[in-house]
Amino acid sequence: MIDRLVAFSEARYTRLVLVGLIFLGLQTTLFNEMRPFGVCLQVMVLLAAASGLARGSEAGAIAGFIVGLLYDMVLTTPMGLCAAVFAIIGYLAGYAHSFVHESTWWSRMILGAAASGMGMVLLPIAFAITGTDGLFTTHIFVVVLVVAIFNGLLSVPAELICRWALREPAAVR
């Protein structure tokens, strides 16, 4: 029983959930208050993109889904919507990264920024599909730009955290 619990706690997605909870705490407190240019910075989408960059498209999609589901828990939007969008972001980030021949820190920053910006475009589209109107305004461009720049800057440390969280259990020790 204890072995199973230890094995569960060492599972990579368990670690991701714990990291996700910390990021969610930061999202709902610090980044909710800091709003440069009136934009709420989105570290949850950064986590999804960084997972894809760290561990490839498949792990990125699953990690993005888990992170999005955590985010859905605190939002009033339909449950599963952010999960779906973040899964796409995680997948795309990992897929795009697979085309980079020799990955450097700046290539990861660019991919992290691009994936985050795409997430900010896909979110209102997903909201519109589920029946929310009035989201397509010029403010989206500001949101995309600010979130992309901020997440681009933080994508390298975020990728390191995701690389640790999504490591195989044996390799953690």
């Binding site: 498949e58 889904f65 919507l81």
Partner: peptide, 18 residues
């Protein structure tokens, strides 16, 4: 299979919530 499962789960969750 993983992507299909994630998509299906999302659709089910959205439908349930709506």
């Amino acid at each position: 299979r993983a992507i299909l499962l994630l998509s299906l789960t999302s659709v089910i969750l959205i439908t349930l919530d709506l």
